[in-house]
Amino acid sequence: MFFDPLYFLFALPPMLLGLWAQFRVKSAFSKYSQIRTNSGINGAEAAKRILLRGGLQNVTVEATRGSLSDHYDPRSKTLRLSEEVYGLPSIAAVGVAAHEAGHALQDKEGYKPLRLRAVMVPAVSLGSNLGPIIFMAGLFLAGTIGTTLAWVGITLFAAAALFALVTLPVEFDASRRAKELLVSQGIVSSAEMEGVNAVLNAAALTYVAAAAQAVMQLLYFVTLMNRRDS
């Protein structure tokens, strides 16, 4: 598989996009982590202000280890911010914190793509791990059994590709909410939004790259099967 030129035709473009996206995220976050907000509000304070405004007093904001490990846990109603976001009054920090708070607001409102993504998690865990293995096993087995097994693997992996696509509106909407709330709550000024946009748009690109990688891998699997059956 790894020495198939066709594989690189499918895999290389999204891989390059992913590398470019990671570079943009690190570059933008590093740059705007050095620029202090005029309001002096840090990431934790920004998140709490947005949550309070949204009537989410039951959501806890806490620090967590790891770089850019920020996330919202809907099960425990906890918004976890990395140390570089939690305590720093930087443009990058409040942008990331507001984005995660946006997920909490989605949860409260029952945002349908977020609910769909949560329902898909068990299938995605199975599909992303076992799907390619089952597909390759079926690909090298002869007859109807091999064909059936390969398509089972493709179907399982399709769930992972679908999950990546469903993630896009979830992340885009959270960023949209963040940008609106940061200005309306007086956390950043209109002039500071250039930095917020740079950070959140770069982060959004990583999700686009992940979706592209999943879809292209799925198409590669389907192409192999069509080539086998022809």
Rank of each mutant, 00 (worst) to 15 (best):
Q213F: 05
A161K: 05
P89A: 11
A28R: 02
E194R: 05
L52G: 06
P169F: 13
L56Y: 14
A210E: 03
L81K: 06
G55H: 10
L182R: 04
A46D: 04
D70R: 09
S30N: 12
F8L: 13
I35C: 10
V25G: 05
D70E: 08
S39Q: 09
Y32R: 00
I91D: 01
S190C: 07
L16H: 07
A142E: 14
L9N: 07
A204M: 06
G95N: 06
L141W: 02
G43C: 13
G153E: 10
V152K: 11
V196H: 03
S175A: 14
R53N: 04
R228E: 03
F3M: 15
S69Y: 01
A178G: 08
A46Y: 01
R49W: 00
L16S: 12
T148H: 07
R53M: 00
I134N: 09
M120A: 09
R24T: 09
S82V: 10
Q106T: 00
S69N: 10
H71K: 13
G138C: 06
Q213S: 12
P5A: 14
A158W: 14
A137R: 07
I91Q: 00
I145F: 05
L165G: 12
V121E: 05
A11H: 13
A11L: 10
V188P: 04
L79S: 03
G143M: 05
T78L: 05
T147E: 06
Y32W: 14
L224K: 01
A210C: 03
Y72T: 00
I134Q: 10
R65A: 15
D173A: 07
A46F: 04
N201Y: 08
A210F: 02
H99S: 04
L116C: 05
T148R: 06
V183E: 03
A97D: 03
R80A: 11
T155V: 10
L218T: 04
L116Y: 03
T60S: 15
S39H: 12
A47C: 13
A21N: 11
G18N: 15
A160N: 11
S125I: 06
L165Q: 00
N129P: 07
V59G: 13
A93F: 05
Y7F: 15
F2L: 15
R53K: 11
P5V: 15
S82N: 09
L130K: 02
G40L: 07
Q185M: 06
M1H: 14
G143Y: 07
T64G: 09
D229A: 02
K48Q: 13
S175C: 11
Y72P: 03
A209T: 05
M225Q: 04
A63L: 10
G195F: 13
A191D: 15
K26I: 08
A101M: 01
L19N: 02
T206L: 06
Q22Y: 14
A11D: 08
A161V: 11
S90G: 01
N42H: 09
I50W: 08
I50K: 08
R228N: 04
G43H: 15
Q34G: 02
K26Q: 15
I35H: 11
K26D: 14
Y72L: 03
Y207F: 12
A202C: 00
A161H: 09
Y72A: 01
A137Y: 00
L149N: 07
